[in-house]
Nucleic acid binder design. Structure first.
Length: 424
RNA sequence: GGAGCAGUGGCUGAGCGGCUGAAAGCGACGGUCUUGAAAACCGUUAUACCCUUUGGGUAUCGGGGGUUCGAAUCCCUCCUGCUCCGCCA
């Protein structure tokens, strides 16, 4: 959420921000309602002042004087209800418009309409050239008996799968390895609840907007989180933190649920776009400072790069353009790993910087020692590893001519020393 | 699922329908004292918004609604926590 004062001061900035992000929000309507609400509230405040003044004198009065005072109060009450009606009518609209105002992207973010206009910043690692005809991850997985999509679909519908035997082991190995990297880097490991109330969804910026992307338990009015970002970022929701607690750094491992509504027919092949996967996510909550936010944005990106390099996966870093940024994101880097079967670099990580957008929505603050003021925190997050999506490059890049898979060195200790996945 | 109890400031904890934005204690901060620290003593110490020059005003005692001239205090409802019973793991 954006500070209404900033919108009042410079509505043009937020119109432009929305336009750049391809987001609909009627700033003119918002400022008009805001002005009306403000004046109505000022009137109400004046009436309340008078009412309080008269009300306080009542116990000292008696007889006619008292009757007079009561009559005056009755008149004020009539005026009051007129303004109250106005507030009641306009406030909900103002509130919901406020939830739609976009965080302006940083100036250096490339302007663009969608992900096709993201800008590649650099490439890391060598893309493997095969001297045999490589299989894709589905062929490899099926032949090795470690992936079973058919039965996944039979039991759970489209975009579902089973991982079996060494496939399941590899999946857990990569997650556990990623978590251990984060713990070594000073992040607090977290196991989190995933059935989230609407407040947590709104606080992180997923609602309103991503309801269609979310599985909702209608009976219990909770939502299945699509990422541990939700519980991790909202962990201290509504609290006032001590400055010395910051930065807070979390690494959470969780299952992630996504409906993929509107993606029908897109990426239907294999384990790329699926309804349920597991992910280690990193979240940083820091002070209200652009410099700090920038510093930790680079840090969470580099954490994930450490994991990718340890897995020896070729990848590139992409600066996400304005049209591909979420409502609350000021800047975003994607990491895209090389996936031979897709003959392209494809997103495996997404590092987002929000400034105070999320913190403001969830009222997450800290006491600033210099000013003694309560300031909104800044929040950031990034994928550490998401599996099975990352199994696509791992399986495809580590495959051998005989159809076996060499287990990445750093994962071998997590698989009981197993060096190769072969047909059993 | 049934029965009961509770939710007050950073924390603990008082609170009669008006004198309570809220006692008291702790903590924190500033000062006196001290070579320094501790102790002791003195003082300060919620948040948001509106108008403004110092300053003034409004709202907030889990959320929302209601009764009343006036609600932390009475009523309704929701949320949360605790206890007992039942059921299940």
């Amino acid at each position: 959420m954006i500070d209404i004062k900033e919108i009042r001061e410079n509505p043009q900035r937020f119109k432009q921000a929305a336009k750049n992000k391809n987001i609909e929000v009627d700033i003119d309507r918002l400022t008009a309602i805001d002005a009306e609400l403000l004046s109505a509230k000022q009137q109400l405040q004046e009436i309340a002042t008078e009412k309080n003044r008269i009300g306080k004198s009542i116990p000292k009065l008696a007889g006619d004087e008292k009757q007079n005072a009561l009559a005056q109060l009755a008149k004020f009450k009539a005026d009051e209800s007129q303004f109250e009606e106005k507030v009641k009518q306009l406030q909900p609209e103002a509130d919901s418009l406020m939830m739609l105002v976009a965080q302006p992207a940083d100036d250096i973010v490339p302007i663009g309409k969608d992900d096709t206009e993201n800008v590649e910043l650099r490439r890391e690692g060598q893309v493997r050239k095969f001297d045999f005809k490589p299989k894709d991850h589905v062929q490899l997985g099926v032949d090795l008996g470690i992936i079973d999509i058919e039965r996944g679909v039979k039991l759970a519908g489209s975009r579902s799968y089973f991982l079996k035997g060494d496939g399941a082991r590899l999946h857990w190995a990569v997650l556990q390895f990623a978590m251990d990297v984060m713990i070594a880097r000073g992040y607090t490991p977290m196991s989190v609840p995933l059935l989230m109330r609407d407040e947590a969804m709104r606080g992180t910026g997923y609602y309103p907007g991503s309801e269609e992307q979310t599985y909702r338990m209608e009976k219990d009015e909770v939502n299945l989180a699509g990422t541990a970002e939700v519980p991790l970022t909202a962990f201290r929701m509504g609290e006032i933190l001590e400055e010395k607690e910051l930065p807070i750094k979390f690494a959470g491992m969780s299952t992630c649920f996504r409906r993929e509504a509107g993606a029908a027919g897109k990426d239907t092949y294999g384990l790329y776009r699926i309804h349920q996967f597991d992910k280690v996510e990193q979240v940083v909550i820091c002070k209200n400072s652009v410099e700090e936010s920038n510093k930790y944005h680079e840090e969470i990106l580099s954490n994930s790069e450490v994991v990718m390099r340890a897995l020896e996966l070729p990848y590139r870093i992409v600066a996400v353009c304005t049209g591909d940024l979420g409502r609350g994101q000021a800047k975003k880097y994607d990491i895209e790993a090389w996936m031979p079967s897709r003959n392209n670099y494809c997103e495996t990580h997404s590092a987002s910087k929000f400034y105070e957008f999320q913190a403001r929505r969830m009222n997450l603050r800290y006491k600033d020692s210099a000013t003694k003021k309560n300031l909104f925190c800044h929040t950031l997050n990034n994928t550490v590893i998401a599996s099975p999506r990352v199994l696509i490059p791992i399986l495809e890049l580590y495959q051998n001519a005989d159809g076996s898979i060499t287990v990445p060195k750093v994962l071998q200790p997590y698989m009981g020393g197993l060096e190769q996945i072969a047909k059993s």
